[in-house]
Design a protein around this nucleic acid. Structure first.
Length: 462
RNA sequence: GCCUAAUUAGCUCAGUUGGUUAGAGCACAUGACUGUUAAUCAUGGGGUCCUAGGUUCGAGUCCUAGAUUGGGCGCCA
């Protein structure tokens, strides 16, 4: 019977004394004079299976003794339940066939490696315990997101990755062009002639699918996007990548409070979903990556998220007596040190709402005080700003005024303004950093270690 | 982009005040071993001490510049 490690762990009791065939990679090989042990992993399950081989049974015993870590093999043998041993069952091999050798200089050894070294071997690191766990959970997290929204009748849309709008704010974008960069066509005063370009205008990779999601929300009511996003900022931190994934739900006939409730429900759902479907991996993170991780996550699921206004948050910071590098101020953004203090102070995720209008985007709905907007950030320990969202300005005249004040070109966003002209309604949404969510779930401290092949400034290997 | 630290064997690291032939564990190779599980034990091979200059009788060690990497901060809808 051709089977997998995952299946054997699920059914080993009923398969006692049956013959099975496995394909996988050698994680460890401990050879002795007349017998030896191979730890086999086939990628389907976090655990390995111990294969016992004996000189009396195998004709290629000598070759099997010399199998190196990383080799791919086929193993045929009898499953034997071993209740008194360290492992619940093992395979008594009848045949062990090497399929692919692993050369002497194989970098991945059965020992602890530094994260930095494994980053430089991003093509091999999914074979380690840690990254096997990270990327399986990443896959499950992906599914959790879709399940959460699909179960609630949200419609998924794929927002475009190439946009022509230059009106999305201060974020540095990657340019998309088919122009010959060695000989760019110019118009009279030396400026680039984009009429010669593929789209006949400036184009760039998207920094957000939100504006398009709004258009769909005003047709389907509840929608979400889930896809990659690109930022060309020269950011060198543990929470920034040049290419990352975002989830951006958008809900119509809803305000900022509905928005926060959705965010809170989603975070709780995701945590429960992942813990249930990747218990081995989550235990591993709990033990070896961040002690107390599971306790922290379980607490998040069972408690209500704190909600405070930006003003209250600044007051908490000022009253704390804590010395900060940057002095907290009512009109200013929160610095990283402030965010860290707040999540520690409240010992869990914190929504900060009602932000000063001048530090937020043009589309956020003006509050009645005319000074703050209906924006919310969800701060969590370890990943900083996990979610940023807002109620959107649905009143055409307010929106146009803000665009003028903030120098956002109205002509390019004519279609966005149309949404306010034809059956506009109050609506809200948020963006969740998928990779940061994964950091939060696993306790991994660097975003480069939760992305299969991360892109950051000066790094586009693999 | 700013500040800071690091770079020595395939990996993780030690290397004293500038002084003989730069070490250890793991990995690898050879051998021993009748239940190992990061197996153990013995033996062996393996080095452009990041790069380029400089100081010195003598540099892994001190100085200058650069590269790469980590951390902190900034930038960041």
């Amino acid at each position: 019977m051709k089977t997998t490690v995952k299946e054997l762990y699920a059914r080993f009791e009923e398969l006692n004394n049956q013959e099975v065939t496995l394909f996988g990679w050698v994680r460890n090989n401990r050879a002795q004079k007349e017998f030896g042990f191979i730890n086999l992993n086939d990628g389907t399950f976090f655990e390995t299976i111990q294969v016992v081989y004996e000189n009396e049974i195998l004709d290629n015993f000598k070759e099997t003794q010399k199998l190196r870590v990383g080799s791919s093999v086929r193993v045929k043998g009898i499953l034997v339940v071993t209740p008194s041993m360290k492992q619940p069952f093992e395979i008594k091999a009848r045949e062990v066939e090497m399929l692919g050798d692993s050369l002497e200089d194989y970098p991945i050894q059965p020992k602890r490696h530094s994260r930095e070294f494994l980053r430089e071997n991003a093509h091999l690191r999914p074979r380690t315990n840690l990254f096997s766990a990270v990327f399986r959970v990443r896959s499950i997290l992906n599914h959790a997101i879709h399940t959460f929204f699909q179960d609630r009748n949200f419609v998924h849309l794929a927002a475009p990755l190439i946009t022509a709008s230059d009106a999305e704010g201060a974020g540095e974008t990657f340019k998309v062009t088919t122009l010959d960069l060695d000989s760019v066509p110019k118009i009279k005063d030396g400026e680039v002639d984009y009429h010669e370009d593929f789209f006949q205008k400036k184009a760039n990779l998207t920094v957000s699918g939100q504006l398009q999601a709004e258009a769909f929300a005003l047709a389907f009511k509840d929608v979400y996007t889930f896809g990659p996003t690109f930022r060309a900022e020269n950011s060198n931190t543990t929470t920034h990548a040049s290419e990352f994934w975002m989830i951006e739900p958008e809900i119509a006939f809803a305000d900022i409070h509905d928005d926060m409730q959705l965010a809170e429900d989603m975070v709780k759902f995701i945590i429960e979903y992942v813990i249930k479907r990747a218990p081995k991996e989550m235990e591993f993170f709990n033990k070896f990556v961040q002690k107390g991780l599971l306790e922290k996550l379980n607490k998040v699921v069972s408690s209500d998220f704190i909600r405070i206004t930006h003003k209250e948050a600044v007051k908490v910071l000022l009253d704390s007596g804590q010395k900060f590098e940057n002095l907290p101020k009512y009109g200013d953004d929160l610095a990283t040190e402030h965010e860290k203090f707040l999540v520690k102070h409240f010992d869990g995720p914190v929504f900060v709402i009602d932000w000063p209008k001048d530090i937020k985007a043009f589309y956020m709905r003006m509050n009645d005080d005319n000074e703050t907007v209906a924006a919310m950030d969800l701060l969590v320990p370890g990943s900083g700003e996990l979610i940023g969202g807002s109620q959107r300005e649905e009143r055409l005249e307010y929106l146009e005024k803000r665009m003028e004040e903030m120098n956002v070109p109205k002509e390019e966003l004519w279609w966005y303004l149309d949404l306010r002209k034809y059956g506009g309604c109050k609506h809200a949404g948020f963006g969740l950093g998928f990779d940061r969510m994964l950091m939060y779930l696993t306790g991994i401290e660097n975003i480069r270690d939760v992305i299969p092949f991360p892109r950051t400034p000066r790094n586009c290997e693999f």
